[in-house]
């Protein structure tokens, strides 16, 4: 359990939100803070896009994001330094990306 957005939220060992219904913008804000990220409009564009794609059952990869027109890869790294896809997915309340086996 973790205290996110003013409530107790169940997270897994990697800190990812376990139940999608627990996620809201305040939770996202706190998850971002833990990663040292202050969410701006540019961050939200990526987070919203990830959630929208996830809703359609599409697995996201850095390549797909780079080609989406939402953000280029260089900027993505500036927005979410260190691990753009896994951090963006975490803030979006999604599972750790499995763009791998």
């Amino acid at each position: 359990m973790a205290n996110l957005g003013g409530k107790e939220v169940e997270v897994n060992e990697g800190g990812y939100v376990m139940h999608p219904e627990d996620w809201d913008k305040a939770v996202a804000g706190d998850l971002a803070k833990e990663l040292g990220i202050n969410l701006t409009d540019a961050h939200w564009k990526v987070v919203d896009y990830l959630r929208e794609q996830h809703g359609q059952g599409i697995e996201m990869s850095i390549r797909k994001l780079g080609k989406s027109g939402i953000v280029d890869i260089k900027t993505l790294y500036e927005l979410f330094p260190g691990g753009p896809l896994k951090y963006a997915a975490k803030i979006a309340g999604l599972h750790r990306p499995t763009s791998c086996v």
């Binding site: 990869s61 850095i62 390549r63 763009s99 791998c100 086996v101």
Partner: peptide, 8 residues
């Protein structure tokens, strides 16, 4: 370079 690869 990038995932996925044929065999990790």
């Amino acid at each position: 370079s990038e995932m996925p690869i044929k065999c990790p």
